Simulated scan of single mutants.
Amino acid sequence: MSSRLRRAVLAVTLPVLAAGALAACDDSTPAAVAASPAASSGAAAVTETRMVTNQGHRLAFYVTPGHLPAIVLDAGGGEDATQWKDLVPRLSAATGSEIITYDRAGLGHSDEVKGAWDVHAAVSDLEAGLRELKVTKKVILVSHSQAGEVATYFVRANPKLVTGAVLVDASLPQFYTDAEIARVVAATQPQVDAAKAAPSTKETRQLIATAQNYAPMHHAYHKVTWPGGVPATVIVSEKTPFDGSPEDAQWWRDAAAAVAGAGPDRTLVTAVGSSHEIPQDQPDLVLREIEKMAQRS
C-alpha cells in the first residue's frame, strides 16, 4: 500500500497526528475556559460549555440552545468539536434546533482514559452527556468518519431516543471484512510503531489506544447492522478516504450503498468531487441534508 494510501487509511480509522490536531488538543488550555466552537466563530447564539463526568473522567460538551429535535454533531477520528465550528452557527440559524457538539475522551478538552479505545465506552460517554443535558428524546445524530461506529452502536442501544441520523462518509460495518481489516492494520502499523517510539503526548497516546484493540473491535463491528425504524441519510464522498486505491475506494462506496439500501427510510447521497472531509469541502450539502432530516423529525 502506498504512503499516500496509508495516510488516508489512518485518517479514517485512527486519530490524525496533524499540526491542527496538536493545537486543538493543547493540554495547557484549561477546559473550563475553553472557547466553544460557535463562540469562536462569532455566532450570535451563545454556546455554553458543559463538563460532564462519566465513569471517573470528564467530557466537554458544547450546547447552543434551541428547540427539538436536538442535533448532535460527532467528529471524525482524531477530531474534536472544532471540526464543526463553522457549521454550528449556520445550523442553529437555519433550524432553530438545539445544537450539541462534544469532545470524545482523549480529544479536545475531554480527559484521557487509559487503555484501548472502546467504542462501547464512547457510546456510554455520549449517553451520559445527553442525560446530563436532559436530552431525552428527538435526537438527530450527525456522525463523520470514525464517529459512524459510535452512532451505529448508540442507535442500536437507544432507538427511541434517535429520530434520524446523517452519516457523513462514516465508517460503516459492511466495510470491515477480514481482508479489509488486515489491510488497515498492515497499513497503519508503521505509524503506530513510530508513535510508540516517539515522546509520549496526548496525540500519540490516543493513536496507540485506538490501534490496540482495532482488529477484534472491527471484526465484531462487521456483524452489526443499522437498526430498522431509525431513518438515515448516508452521505458518501466521491473520492473516499482511499483516493489512490480504486479497490478500497469502491469497497467504501459499496458499504455506504449497502447501508442506505437496507431500509425504506434511508437515502444515499454522493458528495460529488469531495474528499473524505465533506464537512469542510461541502458544508452546504451537509447543512441541507441535516435540515431535511430535522424537517422529517
Results as ranks from 00 to 15, higher is better:
V155Y: 07
K202G: 12
W252T: 10
P190G: 02
A232H: 01
R205D: 13
V184A: 14
W252Y: 02
P231E: 07
A157I: 01
A186H: 11
V168E: 02
A215Y: 09
Q174R: 13
R156N: 14
A165E: 08
D243H: 08
K160C: 12
A260I: 00
Q250W: 04
P246K: 05
A195Q: 08
G228P: 03
I181L: 06
R183Q: 13
T201F: 11
A220C: 11
A211M: 09
L161N: 00
T204C: 09
T188M: 12
K223W: 13
H219F: 11
P199E: 07
R156E: 00
W251L: 15
T210K: 06
Q189D: 14
P246E: 02
V166R: 09
P199T: 09
G164F: 06
V162N: 05
W251G: 06
I181N: 10
K160M: 15
R253K: 12
D193V: 10
V168R: 09
Q206K: 10
P231T: 12
V192C: 01
D178C: 05
E180C: 04
T225S: 15
D169K: 01
V259Y: 07
E180K: 12
V236M: 14
I208S: 02
G228L: 10
L161D: 08
A197H: 06
P216D: 00
S237L: 06
R183K: 15
A187Q: 04
Q250C: 05
L207F: 05
A249M: 02
P173M: 11
A209S: 12
V185G: 03
L207K: 01
G164E: 07
V224D: 02
V185Q: 12
G229T: 10
I208F: 05
V168S: 00
A165K: 08
A211C: 09
F175Y: 11
A165T: 09
A215G: 01
R253F: 04
G164S: 06
E238F: 02
W252V: 06
A258M: 00
W252C: 04
D169S: 05
Q174F: 12
P231G: 11
A194M: 02
A165M: 01
A260S: 03
V184Q: 13
K196V: 14
A182P: 01
K196I: 13
D193S: 15
A187F: 03
T210G: 08
Y214D: 03
E247R: 04
Q189M: 15
D248C: 03
V192S: 02
S245Y: 05
A197G: 13
P246Y: 07
Y176K: 04
A232I: 11
F242I: 09
T188D: 10
P199Y: 10
P216E: 07
P227I: 06
V155K: 08
A187R: 00
G244M: 04
G164N: 00
P246T: 10
P227Y: 00
H218T: 01
A256H: 14
A194C: 00
F175E: 06
Y221R: 09
